[in-house]
Design a binder for these strands. Structure first.
Lengths: 226, 226
DNA sequence: GTATCGCTCGATACACTGTATCGCGACCGA
DNA sequence: TCGGTCGCGATACAGTGTATCGAGCGATAC
């Protein structure tokens, strides 16, 4: 069969240039838009105009992709300010803001050791800015702030999602914790809880976060003095 | 065809009696043994000698099953002791112990609002034991302790898993993370971090948890007094 | 005593997941 | 120009959550 009647080989699209960075950015785009469940290797690959198996040249496992995503977000987290207290506070708030930009971060953060370069760089920046406080205080202080932030952010995002799902605005949600909770509290089985919901303070997310953070920083301050 | 040569109807096993509690216990058994990934509706159903779709009479969604699992564990979490400080400390440590018994809890805790009866009962017990401190302090204090515990427990379990992976498969650990960290710190790009790793305190998990918790409780104490 | 209704259960099906395998085509060194 | 190597992606597989639906039972109505 001569060339002219032989079909051309199937149009082979120039292989899209790929890199871990490109892959991670695509994954983050998907997660930002539709949540972590929307991140599948097939969808990430499709986003890049590429077959799914192609990704395995850059990552060994989907878990590794998630690690890379978390590390990439840590590039956005840098402490600012002078003095250990401002440094720790800015660390906490930068992390929280990152979780607001990338809600899926709440699902992953704290869930595995963070040893990527951007995470290490964030830790480095914090430690370097902590001044001359002795390490015996610095290490547990930074660890405690990080732990607090992880838990606070997870709860905040979880509540935000629940609110969004229920279609209630924040005040309704906080006032009643939903009709279910109202009915449950009305049973009288949880009197102390009912009193808190009824008479307690109605803090918004910012206030709650800062109140807890201030407790922690105050407690650290008591050890730092010297 | 007469009776004797007509086959009996197929042996129909008596349907296993089911309940949410039984389902949740089976799921927890699986998760305790093999981690959260081992909890699939098919496996839970098999554990109970039942078809997978049977479970949908008791739960609407797998997420609901996970919610039930978390709530069930909260039945093990009750504060003890006298005075707000002991109450909060025992709450934190009871939660941590629960996560030690059920490592998968670290994957779920804080990830969604906990409004089940056992979770509410735990909150009720805490609030009821907090004494006469004004609600403006109690509410953020309890919230802060819970946030800290969530983050601290997640990190601790994450580290424990990494350690165990290194213990069970030492070659893999030696081939990857250990030397990776050493090499990375040796680059000199993270001097403050390297100094901490080299000269810093080496706290074990108990000490780290308690150090952070003490910071937080100290900070709360400052507001409680006045 | 018999016909019928409704409901419960599980088999089947579907779309989708992460990943192993493998053959084809393109490039590179000789 | 050939042969080997290698990277790519099509295909495959086991497993997932869940929708659908038919069969069989028990209870109900005559």
């Amino acid at each position: 069969m001569v060339v002219w009647e032989r079909p051309e080989p199937p149009e082979r699209p120039a292989p899209a240039p790929l890199s871990r960075e490109r892959i991670v950015r695509a994954a983050i785009r998907l997660a930002d838009a539709d949540g972590l469940d929307a991140v599948s290797l097939r969808k990430v690959a499709a986003e890049l105009g590429v077959g799914p198996m192609r990704l395995y040249g850059y990552i060994a496992t989907k878990e590794e992709l998630l690690d890379l995503m978390v590390d990439a977000v840590h590039a956005e987290i840098r402490p600012t300010g002078d003095g250990w207290r401002e440094v720790l506070r800015s660390l906490a708030e930068a992390t929280r803001r990152a979780a607001h930009r990338h809600e899926w971060l709440a699902d992953l953060i704290g869930g595995r050791p963070q040893l990527g370069p951007d995470s290490l760089a964030a830790s480095e920046a914090v430690l370097a800015a902590m001044g001359d406080i002795d390490l015996d205080t610095v290490v547990p202080a930074v660890a405690a702030v990080n732990a607090y932030v992880v838990g606070a952010v997870r709860r905040e995002i979880a509540e935000r999602r629940a609110e969004r799902a229920s279609g209630m605005d924040q005040r309704q949600w906080q006032a009643s914790y939903g009709p279910y909770l109202r009915r449950t509290l009305a049973t009288g089985r949880f009197p102390a809880l009912a009193r808190v919901v009824h008479d307690g303070p109605h803090l918004d997310a910012d206030e709650t976060f800062r109140a807890g953070l201030d407790f922690l920083l105050d407690g650290i301050a008591a050890r730092v003095v010297g």
